[in-house]
Design a protein around this nucleic acid. Structure first.
Lengths: 199, 199
DNA sequence: AAGCGTCCGGGACAGTTGACCCAGAGCGGC
DNA sequence: GCCGCTCTGGGTCAACTGTCCCGGACGCTT
């Protein structure tokens, strides 16, 4: 087997875990399965990580970081508020379709974190981050379209996250892409009505 | 140990599994842990169920049945559309708060089902059922308030489910009850705007 | 070429898991 | 009483889990 620096090996293992969970579910992500996917040995695993838990924490952080970094990517904003919200939501959807497993993995990790004290903080922080990114998007929209939100912006941000999570969950279950996009657009219109011309 | 008819034992085991998953997560739901919670022996388990999987299927069905039966419970409808949608969503929220674990369990089961061919159908059907119940509620509202939906009702139904799922998921993670209720109300107002006076 | 820290291979460990088995206890009907 | 069905106790099984260890291979520095 190739000789690889520990830090590179770490990333290989994290990526392998991501693939395994996405393809076969959280329960399938045993140390052996992950190592096989990464083309590494068990010894390499425990050389790089003190425990499986440590791998999981790293995986959660990395997956979340990837997601929010894409969210932050620029989407064309301007014109009507509805169009801007729509573009934002569609931007999110692109990241989902780009790697359909990412959301599946994130849900599994969240689910796991709810009952694992060591991960609880990570999951909660993950959500704080989501809300922050959503809020930023909304503030950019308000500035670009010269409107203000009739509800506290944190509240609209939470609604945005609710929509993305809910739509994604439904899509994971029934795989109805068209319905997901339609719902996303309709919600965009709905949310846009919480904006009024800035005075 | 008490001598119990097999059918009663089945229900005891299903209920026990529900409690274990709710309290300690899906991974903790081993046959032994479930039996301990139910006060039964492993032999009793395999006398009642051919396999653990069978227990899981039964659990999914039962949990889902409980949920939808509560949904169908009457909520005061009438007055404005917004008030009716709000009452509907708040009715849902009551069932969540009544047993906070139910949603947690349902999410775990859904997550599990996504990667377990034997359960895949169950999860998908569960969602079909949700949409059906949501659609019924919307149609009752339309009739009671003498309005019609400006979007296909199946579409609004999906949005309703998206909202409940999304709000619930966020709440499971951060436990912010007030934010959940606020979001629910705001979404109710938003959804109500997809109604127009019947002509 | 020698030495040394970094990394890996294979094997082993104790613990846990789902599943199973069989002898026998309880209880209703004959 | 006895029979037969339903249920239970305790034990066993192979498979799998996360973790650990030790000897040795690599490749850089000197």
């Amino acid at each position: 087997m190739a000789r690889v620096p520990a830090q590179v090996r770490r990333k290989q293992l994290v990526d392998a875990a991501f693939r395994v969970i996405g393809k076969e579910g959280f329960a399938a992500a045993t140390t052996r399965r992950i190592c096989a996917e990464a083309g590494a040995s068990l010894a390499a695993f425990h050389y790089c990580f003190d425990s499986k838990e440590e791998l999981l924490v790293e995986l959660t952080r990395q997956t979340q970081a990837e997601l929010t970094s894409r969210h932050a990517a620029e989407v064309e904003i301007g014109g009507s508020v509805a169009a801007s919200v729509r573009a934002t939501l569609r931007g999110y959807w692109e990241t989902v379709e780009e790697d359909p497993n990412r959301e599946s993995v994130l849900m599994a990790l969240t689910q796991h974190a709810l009952h694992e004290p060591a991960l609880a903080g990570v999951a909660a922080q993950q959500y704080v981050e989501y809300h922050r990114v959503a809020q930023e998007s909304l503030e950019r929209i308000a500035a670009a379209c010269d409107v203000s939100w009739t509800l506290p912006v944190e509240q609209v941000a939470r609604m945005l996250v609710v929509v993305t999570d809910g739509v994604t969950l439904a899509w994971l279950v029934d795989g109805d892409r068209d319905a997901a996009l339609t719902a996303l657009d309709a919600f965009a219109d709905g949310l846009a009505r919480f904006a009024e011309p800035a005075h």
